[in-house]
Amino acid sequence: MLHPLTIEPLVRAALLEDLGRAGDVTTDSIVPADLRTAARIAARKEGRVAGLEAALIAFRLLDPSMEIEVTQPDGTDVPAGGTIATLSGRARALLTAERTGLNLMGRLSGIATATRALVREVEGTQARIVCTRKTTPGLRLLEKHAVRLGGGHNHRFGLDDAVLIKDNHIAVAGGVRAAVERVRANIGHMVKVEVEVDTLEQLEELLPLGTDVVLLDNMDPATLRRAVAMVDGRMLTEASGNVTLATVRAIAESGVDMISVGWLTHSAPNLDLGLDI
């Protein structure tokens, strides 16, 4: 689980964005400051819960005395109509934090639910579903955690934790070998190196260089099978491009170790949730 200290600044920023300069003028006009009430966070559709901890921080920031009972914690599957958590506290805090909490939960639960679907589709193969850096600015930590809650795995978190030599790097360097040699002259011995290739010819050029991972970009399943055979276990293989629920099984059956999916974090549909007083 993520430490609350890493989540709170993100939630606080989201609340401040919503509160603006004058606060919740609607709720503060209608609801007495001392009124207390109870509400439940409910799922309108079935899905995998993610982002509940972030949502609860939003409510607690506005009412530290908020009483919370969690029914479906992060990482569990909730049925349509199911209660995820029950909250009891100041009515103003519940109403003011509602949209921030549900925005975070709906976004992250949608990612976890989409990841879960892909993971189930590749069961029985060795392939892992992994995310990419195609995340919402400022929310990468939460979105990558949601992928894990859906049963997937994380690719690199940023530009600094691994080398990924892509097509534009190769173009600037003048070839695969030149790019790899320049990287090795500059990085530490603990940093792993991955290279993206678009063709089997590029893969052939890469194999003698002995990198850690090869990214097989936009190859059909038949070409992926040939690539996996060429690699023959000398490095990890990652497939990317044109991955959908309909295509992911065939990609996994090619024998690749990982399948990276950008849309999990840039366009997975929200899970429909609601706060019911």
Rank of each mutant, 00 (worst) to 15 (best):
M230G: 14
R60L: 10
I84V: 06
I259P: 10
A91F: 02
A229H: 15
L224G: 02
P9K: 12
V163E: 06
L275Y: 01
L16C: 08
L264T: 10
A42C: 08
L118E: 08
L207M: 08
V176W: 08
R99S: 05
E238N: 09
E253G: 03
A14T: 06
N218F: 13
I277Q: 10
M219A: 13
V70D: 00
V213D: 11
A227I: 04
A43P: 01
G175H: 02
G174L: 12
T244I: 08
V248M: 08
R21W: 08
I111R: 03
R92H: 05
R148C: 12
E98V: 00
A55K: 06
T37E: 09
N103F: 10
V122L: 05
G110P: 08
T71H: 09
G82V: 02
R48G: 01
A239F: 00
N154S: 15
V31T: 15
L2V: 04
R249D: 01
R40G: 02
L35E: 15
N186P: 00
G75S: 12
V31W: 13
V195L: 09
T223F: 13
A227C: 03
R226V: 11
G110M: 11
A54T: 00
V228F: 14
G158P: 06
D167F: 03
I57C: 05
L15K: 04
